[in-house]
Amino acid sequence: MLYRVIDATELPSLVRAFMDSYEVVAPVKQGRGYVFDAIESPDEIALDYDTTIVSPKKYFLPPKETLFEFDATVNEVTDFAVEITPRVIFGAHACDINAINRLDLVFKDGKYPDPYYTARREATLIVGISCMPSEHCFCDLWGSDEARFGYDLFLQDIGGKYLVSISSVEAANILEAACDPRVATDEDRIEFRHATRKRQESFNREVPDIQEVAMLMDAFHKDPYWEELGGRCLACTACSAVCPTCFCFDIRDTLDANGKTGKRERTWDACTAPQFALVAGGHNFRENGRNRVRHRMYHKLNGFLANHDRMLCVGCGRCVKACKANINPIEVLKFFERKGAEDGE
């Protein structure tokens, strides 16, 4: 990994340099929150955001996309030509970069790569930026508060300057042309350690740091707690809508008005939706809130880990804010903490 330092005043020049060849997507203020959106000027970027309403996932896995078109009269299928936009996601936090890395495991690096996702991923550069945690963040518990790979540049604010971690030649060339990067000094490294320590000390310590979460998910799989948690679930699917790692989808064939031509579309889906596990014949494998909520938490905190050696949850805290029934991984951790206290009595 190559490290360089640039002045904070050079950041607009770096953004403009990216804009010469790419669509630049960055966090911008929208209402009372922040969203990732295409920008027309570096002045629009809000790098001091806490978190965005939804993650950059939508630029790799759109909420709705056409897979192919068909004509029933001649029984022909036409591959849909996806228009790929060269893009830079500027200002992604470490948790969101780690979330994209997890999506890569499913859609890009698996046995059967998804061509739509892969094409967008390979046409995208990612510029990460350091952040300070909000009260809802618990990415430190899952080791997602630092991004060790999955980005092209990562900017660590060290007070009027940025320590830049460089991991791609393409981004390095743009950085070199737009800024005046210099070798980090001992003072810069000291500032980096101070900034890192300050971030680590700012996490909400009321969130329990529970060890062996995956094992506990198995141990308490039949606990009445899931009945209580599932009974509160409104099945609104807000948790999945804002989650940076949820990747479930549905496939739908949509006919045109003539009833002869149409298209096959992929749309986001959610395992907390009542119809998600409904199959032909009317049987529903997860017909109640208890089973649906438990399944979602199990996949986040155990199932994905078993297959990919890492939690699917990255601790971004979006679901904590989105769920009106207070159903989220933090509540599950608190449940495990209570169980531990009961066992110790």
Rank of each mutant, 00 (worst) to 15 (best):
V242Y: 10
I251R: 12
V242H: 13
Q275I: 14
R264C: 05
D256M: 14
G259M: 07
R252D: 14
F335D: 00
G317T: 07
G281C: 04
R292D: 04
R286V: 08
I210N: 02
T261V: 09
G262D: 03
N288Q: 10
L255H: 11
R292S: 04
A219S: 12
A219T: 14
P244E: 12
R286H: 08
V293P: 01
T272G: 05
A270N: 11
M297C: 02
F249I: 11
H308V: 15
R318G: 04
M311P: 09
I327P: 00
D343C: 15
V314D: 00
Y225Q: 01
E337K: 06
K339G: 03
K222A: 15
R232L: 05
F247L: 07
L301S: 12
C236E: 03
F220E: 00
E342Q: 06
E228T: 12
C246P: 09
N326G: 05
E227A: 14
H283Q: 13
C271N: 04
C316H: 06
A270D: 13
L333P: 00
D253W: 09
T261I: 11
T245P: 00
R338I: 01
N307Y: 15
R264M: 02
I327S: 00
D256R: 15
L229Y: 00
I327D: 00
T245F: 10
L333N: 02
R294K: 12
H221D: 12
R318N: 02
V293E: 00
K324H: 14
H221R: 14
F249S: 12
P244C: 13
R318T: 05
L216Q: 07
N307A: 15
G231P: 03
D223I: 09
G259W: 11
A257G: 07
R264A: 10
D218K: 09
A277G: 06
F304H: 09
H308Y: 15
K321L: 14
E342F: 02
A238L: 13
K300N: 03
C239I: 03
N328C: 00
V332K: 01
Y225P: 02
V279F: 11
R266A: 10
E287K: 08
A306C: 04
I330T: 08
A273L: 13
E265L: 13
C243T: 08
L216S: 02
G340K: 09
